[in-house]
Each structure stands twice: as C-alpha cells, then as structure tokens.
Design a protein around this nucleic acid. Structure first.
Lengths: 208, 208
DNA sequence: ATTTAAATACCGACCGGTCGGTCTATTTTT
DNA sequence: AAAAATAGACCGACCGGTCGGTATTTAAAT
C-alpha cells in the first residue's frame, strides 16, 4: 500500500519495515502460543493474525521452532534483567530472597497473559533437546545463585545450618509451583500475595 | 458373563481378551505420551506399539482424547488412594503434612517414567475445558484439605496464626514445583530428599 | 455335544483436511 | 539495477477418525 509517506525523516527510532514485521510475528506468536499452545498454533494462523504472508514469515525465521526459541530466549533474558540485580545487590540474604519473591508477584501482575508460555517452554523442553538446553542452563544458574546466597547466610550466621542445595531447590520449587498454579487457576487467589506469604513463612523456618 | 471357563482352569485373573487389549493401549499410550508428548504421539504410533489395529483402538476408545482422559483419571485416582488416608488419618497436623511429603518422595521413585505425564495434563488443562475440569477439581480438593489441616493446627495451638489458604497454596506449590523440577532435571538431585528437607524447613516456619 | 446365531473384538485401506515448509513472482528499499 | 522483503499458490507428509468386512468368543437352540 505504499502509503506515500515519502520518508518521515523522523529518522530516530524508525524501525526498518522488516523489523516491524519481525516484531509483529513474535508478538502475535507469543499470544497465540499462550492462548492455544505451541502445537495447536499453525504457521498460517500466525501469519493471518500478524497480517503477514507466509513468505515473510519464512524470510524472517527459518522455522516455527525458531520463533519459539527466540521467544524463549527473550523471556529468559527479561527474567535475568529483573532478577539478577535484585539478588546480587541485596544487602542481606533474607532481603535478597524476599525481593526476588516480590518480583515474582510483579510477574504475575504484568505477564499474566503470557504465563501459559511458561508451561509451553517446560513441556517442550522435556521433549526437545534444544529447548531443554536453553531452559536448563538458566534454571541451574538460578538454583546455584540461591544456593550460594543461602550458603552466605549460613556463614554470616543469619541462617540455620541447612543444606544449601536443598534449600535452593525448595525456593525454586516454590516459585515454579506458584507460577504453575497461577497458570491454571489465575483467579483462584491473589498469587502475588500468596507468594509473599509463602516465602516469608519459608524464610522464618530458615532463619535463626 | 459366567465365564465358567471350562478350559484353562487357570481361571484366576484371566482377563477377557478385550480387557488385555484395552490395557495394552492404555499402557503404551502412557509411555508414548510421556516420551514424546500428547500431540506428537499419533494414534497410528500407539497402535503399532501396542500391536493393535486402528480399528481395535477405536473400538475401545472413541477418540485419542478419551485415552488421555482415562489416563488422567487413573492418575488422580491413584494419587487420592495414597494421599487421602494419610492426611485424614494423621494424628497431628505436622505429621499429616510430613507424611504427605514422604509420599511425594515415593511418587518420584516409582513413577519417574510417567512423571512427564504430569506436565502433559497440566498443559492440556489450560487449553481443554474438559481436561481442566478433571484437573482442577482434585487440585482444589487438596488445597482445601491442606487449608483445613492448617486451620486445625492453628486452633490446636501447634501452628502460628497464618492465613490457612496462603499456607495451603504454598504447600501445593512446593509439591508441584518439586515435581516440575523432577520432570525436567530428574538426575539433578535426590528429589525425595529435597522434598523432605523443604517441607521440614517450611513446617518449622509454620510451627510455633 | 453340536450346531446355529448373535455379539463382540479386531483389521487395515481409506478419507478429508491440516500442517510445516518451498518456490516463483512481485513489490519495496537502497 | 541490485538486494531485500513480501506475497500467496503449491507440495508432500501426515493425522485423527471412519467404514465395510473378517475373525473370535459367547450364548442359545437343538
């Protein structure tokens, strides 16, 4: 449709057309994957929803799976961006973990529409080695991060001498379990609040 | 059906042929669903693995989804059978929850091969109303059961006065999260032990 | 006990439709 | 005019499910 617009030198921020297309494909894919699942979402469906031809789709992505992987990587990167500074910059161990929990609450509020993607990622990762690799690495990183945090707390004397690895895995389990429940039963509770309470309870068992 | 079974006096346990076939379809389906996922597993594949024709398959089940639902119901029934007596028969609140945790450990040990089905169930339930209904009902039952247990503990004075619903959801989250981790990273830890430790930690935060 | 009849279990070719992906042609951008 | 981006017709594989027919088991009749 061309739309004249000779140029709009606006220069700044003008995404190249192709970038817009690419972004639209990603956004629409995320929505559809969340809504109907990965397998159930067809490439044609994505194209229709993104108002893009199949040719354009395959120009930007080599496969449907590649779209999925891109989404996954973006998801993990965003998580890191929010999570890591909080944990690493925490003054005390308890504070760090508590703050991480509050982030989880935020995740519930903001990303509730895309939460089902979490399930898609995990399910896919148990079948697809490529997805597994992308999922497991950050997962282990978080686990070790929590473990070292607990270890530090024990050394400092603020935490009871528990097994740091078990504790870390338990914390991760808590987070995953809450997300899982949030996915299936979004209106069953104020999940942000439940998270806060749960972590607090847990931390009280952990503290001296 | 009488079955007198004049011959093959072996009598005991002789399943009718059709029952054997049906059972084989179910067993093979469970394995394949676990291994490759629900969508990725074709009916033809199931038939081949079960050494059964497609006609036989559709003689015993109206659809692929029906097989899935049957599997789900069986799974839940087995869970109930193990879980409910423990919780209802517990002498103290803490003991009940602790015992439930030990069952979880047992689940890990025995059903490790079928654990991925857990993910299939949950993912499917967020897309299919029928599966959702079958999943959500027992899930809520457990949640309320834990909540009432906590409530009782508070009344008895053995637990601190926390919000019973939050606590119950947290316990469920713990269980789900541990299973989830067990699915993806089966060899990452002794999940039975982690479960025990985690629950103990949590209970210490909960106790007075 | 034997035969007959009915019911059940099973078989596998087949069908309409969908899917992910390819290819050639056209338009837009540089 | 060359290159990048987009369009959409097209392809073969495959999928869940159907259907007409066959084999086996069970019950009834003799």
């Amino acid at each position: 449709m061309s739309q004249a617009a000779p140029r709009a030198k606006a220069g700044a921020g003008v995404q190249r057309r192709s970038e817009i297309t690419r972004a639209r494909i990603l956004q629409v894919s995320q929505q559809l994957f969340s809504q109907n699942g990965y397998d159930a979402t067809g490439v044609a469906e994505i194209c229709a929803a993104a108002a893009v031809s199949k040719g354009a789709f395959y120009h930007h992505f080599p496969s449907k799976q590649a779209v999925f992987m891109t989404l996954l990587e973006g998801w993990l990167a965003a998580l890191d961006e929010q999570m890591l500074p909080l944990l690493e910059g925490a003054r005390s161990v308890a504070e760090g973990i508590q703050q991480a929990a509050s982030i989880t609450g935020l995740v519930f509020a903001s990303a509730s529409g895309q939460l089902p993607m979490f399930l898609e990622f995990w399910r896919e990762s148990s079948h697809d080695p490529l997805v597994w690799q992308a999922t497991i690495a950050p997962y282990r990183r978080y686990q070790e991060l929590f473990a070292s945090l607990v270890r530090k707390g024990i050394e400092e004397g603020s935490l009871r001498p528990v097994d740091p690895n078990s504790a870390a895995r338990t914390i991760v389990a808590l987070a995953f379990g809450l997300i899982l429940q949030g996915v299936i039963d979004p209106h069953g509770a104020d999940w942000g609040e439940v998270t806060q309470n749960g972590i607090r309870l847990f931390m009280e068992g952990l503290s001296k």
